[in-house]
Write a protein that binds this DNA or RNA. Structure first.
Length: 264
DNA sequence: TCGCTTGTTGATGG
DNA sequence: GCCATCAACAAGCG
């Protein structure tokens, strides 16, 4: 279920279960899910290594050891499961990290979007993750403004572009635009300074509050678009106007035709 | 059977 | 070169 807040949850999960622990063995049940190494090479590289604190950048999770690191992307259907023993493994558990002393972290991924990579150092991880922009949780106002000023085109496509800023996906983009009262088909070059300010504030609020939710799934609050998005007969939580469904940036997009003004 | 899905990439066309 | 669109990847659900 991964956008930035979900992956932040996986980072905490991995930290809790694996940081400071040593790898007994890495079992790969689906060789194709490891994108840049064989299952044997992955096992050999990580076995007897001890995990450090994992890092997250956008939707990517970097699980470093005292040697190389396991780099994970969760696609649309990836998540972690902990097991005390090999019992109860699921057929979608595609990479399993068995720990010395017992227990295992399972990388479960139904559809095989995303995957696992082996990185020998930070530089290699940058190559794997492919030129990400600043993390959406960490980017500051000035940088956001500066990056936005260099872009053209549909605002939703820009928000979701991981090279612009890392972490925003389809749902959080809709939520951000709705909270900022900006139409998803507006072009960024048409946004006023005030629009840009509201966009930054909304993005920061949406990301921060989503991450603060300890629970699994993205929110939540009855005041958010996400609480009604996609439901039949959904109306705007602000003004009760029926929501509109369209396609923007190639993705299903929900917005309020009353609150979010037409594209300029 | 068809359409739909929280992601990303590469082809194609304007 | 930039941008928009769409198919593909893959698997499950209604």
């Amino acid at each position: 279920m991964p956008e930035l807040p979900d992956v932040e949850g996986y980072r905490r999960f991995f930290s809790r279960h694996a940081a400071g622990r040593t790898v007994h063995r890495v079992v790969t049940t689906d060789p194709a899910i490891v994108r840049n190494a064989t299952p044997q090479a992955l096992d050999r590289a990580l076995r007897r290594r001890t995990f450090a604190e994992p890092e997250r950048h956008g939707k990517w999770l970097l699980c470093w050891t005292d040697g190389p690191g396991l780099v994970l992307h969760f696609g649309m259907t990836g998540w972690f499961v902990w097991g005390d023993s090999p019992d109860g493994r699921h057929r979608h558990d595609r990479v399993i990290v068995e720990m010395e002393g017992g227990g295992e972290v399972r990388y479960r991924n139904m559809r095989k979007l995303g995957g696992a990579w082996l990185a020998h150092d930070a530089e290699e991880a940058v190559v794997v993750t492919g030129g990400l922009g600043p993390d959406a949780l960490a980017v500051d106002r000035r940088r956001f403004r500066e990056l936005l000023s260099r872009r053209r085109g549909g605002v939703k496509a820009v928000l979701m572009d991981q090279r612009f800023m890392a972490g925003i996906g389809n749902l959080l983009a809709d939520e951000t635009l709705w909270q900022a009262r900006i139409h998803p088909k507006r072009r960024v070059e048409s946004l006023s300074p005030e629009d840009r300010e509201r966009l930054f504030e909304a993005m920061r609020k949406v990301v921060r509050e989503s991450v603060a939710v300890e629970d699994d799934d993205i929110p939540h609050k009855r005041t958010w678009l996400l609480s009604v998005r996609g439901k039949p007969g959904a109306v705007c939580p602000r003004c009760r106007t029926p929501l509109t469904r369209t396609v923007a940036a190639g993705r299903t997009t929900w917005f309020c035709p009353s609150c979010q003004e037409e594209p300029a």
